[in-house]
Write a protein that binds this DNA or RNA. Sequence first.
RNA 1: GGGGCGGUAGUUAAGUCGGUUAUAACGCCGGCCUGUCACGCCGGAGGCCGCGGGUUCAAGUCCCGUCCGUCCCGCCA
Length: 587
Amino acid sequence: MLERRTHTAGELRATHAGADVIVQGWAQNVRDRGGVVFIVLRDRYGTVQVTLDERSPEAARETAKKVAQEYVLQVRGTVVERFKPNEDMATGAIEIVAKDLEILSSTKPLPFSVSAAQVDAHEETRLRYRFLDLRRAQLQHNLIARHKATHAARQAFDAMGFLEIETPILTKATPEGARDYLVPSRVHPGQWYALPQSPQLFKQLLMVSGFDRYYQIARCFRDEDLRADRQPEFTQIDLEVSFPTRDVIMEITERIVAAMWKAVLGVEVGEVQRIGFHEAIARFGLDAPDLRFGMEHVDLTEAFAASTFPPVAQALADGGIVKAFVVPGGAEASRKVIDGWTAFVRTYGLGGLMWGKLGDDGLSGPLGKALPEGMGPDAFAALVGASHGDLVLVGAGAASAVHPGLGRLRVAIAKERDMIPADTYVFCWVLDFPMFERDDDGNWQAMHHPFTSPIPEHIPWLGTDKMGEVLTNAYDIVCNGQEIGGGSIRIHSAEVQQKVFEALRIGPDEQQDRFGFLLEALAHGAPPHGGLAFGLDRCVSILTGADSLRDVIAFPKTTSAQCLLTDAPSSVPQADLDVLKVRSTVP
RNA sequence: GGGGCGGUAGUUAAGUCGGUUAUAACGCCGGCCUGUCACGCCGGAGGCCGCGGGUUCAAGUCCCGUCCGUCCCGCCA
């Protein structure tokens, strides 16, 4: 018979000795020694050893013989101090001598071990049996951390006067530029809702409505190819503020971050440094720099202008750049390792990697041939900041290949060579983003989104040949090389908004069709406003050290956007499609 | 869309140059064991070698295609 539990498995200590308790949970492990049976009982709070020996009634000892791993049990018994404590167990000073043992639920043979310290099952198996995977301590810990993070954020928002307001899931296509998930309308055949890529437009409308401090922990949907750090549905901590200066948003954001890091890790987030977008690219090759280690990039474009080495000369002739960084103590790296790095940068479109080792005989390796006339090894070493025993890596080519190639390589080498300090969280703001970038066809598109406000001095440049130089009031917050949040001061003038649309060649009809409601709102007393959105999943994966977003989401999808647990997506009866007036073109 | 890695018992893995009965550990089933703590010992069952085609006297192994998982590029803030 099910009874009310008196304690959790994890909370029992020596101070409970003598107490009669009722605990419920899963049999993590059963050790049948014949005359005595030990069962390690697990619940969310920990584990405790249950013992059945001559002190236990015969019926309970009989039942214990039937128990296997992951059976669900109810134990009534007495807490006693162990005469042979287990130091490795939080409850190891005591055990429960069972007076009554009830099997509440049994199990089929398990597809994988829930109790093993290390997961040994393939991801596919884990995802199919997600409810079992989630019993594992690591995932329990991750979801608890996620709860703590969102709870801390909510408290911090509340303390700052923010209101949590929900926005629609069935809505209109938003402008982030990813593919939308669409939902057919039954009532309006041929018309579709889009799932929100973010609550962007709604939160701006809320500002127009006067809710001057809004936040939401919002689910967002983007139908794009996935990665370890990208899921088709993910969660943003979304916020928007009226009448803000840029610093106000940044300060609020820092408080939220500090609250989450404090709540989960007990870590104080200190001052967050600020770095310009162009500086970040120049020093690290990436707009989300990892500041936990060195190996900053050095620009050699000018110094190598006279180089006659074909890869360099060709790159420069094509308007490319030459950049380098130094791997401290890297001279001992094997040819095989360097070849691996070369292959790595090739994936980013770099032709190759020129390398040189600073040893007793000066600069050895292909790089020697690339030095321009008159530059000796010593001068080169001084230029890039290398010393004896170091390895210098140089990339030449289009900036769009050199920056990400060397930027990612810097991070990869730091990981490979164990140069990243553990349990360290370095945050930075990346500021002064360009407003526009060119897409593959050479057309301008918004780098952030088209509601980002240009800095006022640059508004006249919209639509002119200075488009590429227009800077925005946008800001990204980065932790350990990962963008965890981004936002901007928005455009609150219908006039400026229209100018931006025009500069992006979004014509009046399209403006009206897609964003008419926003333009209308901006024309009815819109306050200056701005905000930011955090990737909650990414924050939690940093907080927990998870390798993948899948490990911080209770029910994630695979890289082909399937849920192996529920087998979604799946086909539906033809009748359902008929009701929606939708026809599949797939046989 | 492109590339890398993987798919063999419930699970994780081994499987040589293509060769005769596909191997181990854990788990499972049966038995023994009164202080184990990843308990131990004895015995047993368990296989669509992802799927489809091809080459061959013979395919887990070689070839082609395909599906699934995962990582990366493209894509995506």
